[in-house]
Design a protein around this nucleic acid. Structure first.
Lengths: 125, 125
DNA sequence: ACGCAATGCGTGGCAGACTAAGCATCAGTA
DNA sequence: TACTGATGCTTAGTCTGCCACGCATTGCGT
């Protein structure tokens, strides 16, 4: 019934994205147009959202729709997926940071990339 | 009420594809694993199939899944990259950082913004 | 201590996605 | 004239995606 494996995996993904954005279920509900009760159920792996909801969530997260589809197990093979826009460009184009802050942020980012290049990806959490 | 405009458009598309392949609804049903009665309803615009069914149909037609999604109105006019993504979204979507690094980077960014001043735009909150 | 807003979660119920079974029609065959 | 068999369609029913509402808890301000 409920626990569908794919649903559970997607729920984990959604929850991690929401926590990264640092928002509550209700805030995400408002931003995406999906009810908060349903978001709760999806995060806990009870249901697998429809493509319409995936689309709405991708929009709220400013994330390419194909990523959402892939994460929900719909896009079995996504060969031509474009790489996500670079952080570096986003930082350079930001309007809220001054030059000093931008170069500091870029430095942190590059340090992180270099650091994780040395170590294997641990699926810890 | 079934007739949903988008459902009707997709129904026409599906029927034309089936006729191009020169197969019956029942044959397509066997090839895709979808019931023939449902295929009939979809072709007549009564229902809009779920992403799972779209995937199965695309596979039966040996057609890229993205084409199916586009025809069913799911892949709205979002060709690849978002034009001006926020830094936050860019960080979340990055593929080189792990979750821990992402939230650390986000923390630094938010600290900078708060330090700089006020509170301009954040699409999520 | 009291309220009060925000959080995550459970419930009831409606609508829609989907199927199994059967109806009606047409083509060919004897 | 039937008898097949294939086609598209309809109907009845089940399952589940999704929402409105409400509950219990936590945290913050007074």
């Amino acid at each position: 019934m409920g626990t569908d494996e794919a649903a559970r995996a997607f729920g984990d993904f959604l929850q991690s994205q929401r926590r990264l954005a640092n928002i509550s279920q209700r805030q995400l509900a408002r931003a995406s147009g999906v009810s908060d009760s349903y978001l709760s159920q999806v995060e806990r792996g009870l249901y697998r959202p429809s493509a319409d909801v995936l689309k709405a969530l991708a929009h709220a997260f400013e994330m390419p729709i194909s990523t959402m589809f892939a994460q929900s197990g719909l896009m079995d093979a996504a060969p031509e997926a474009a790489p996500s826009p670079s952080i570096e460009a986003a930082i350079r184009n930001d309007t809220q940071l001054n030059a000093e802050q931008k170069s500091a942020l870029l430095g942190v980012y590059k340090a992180f990339v270099a650091e994780s290049r040395g170590e294997p990806h641990t699926p810890l959490d």
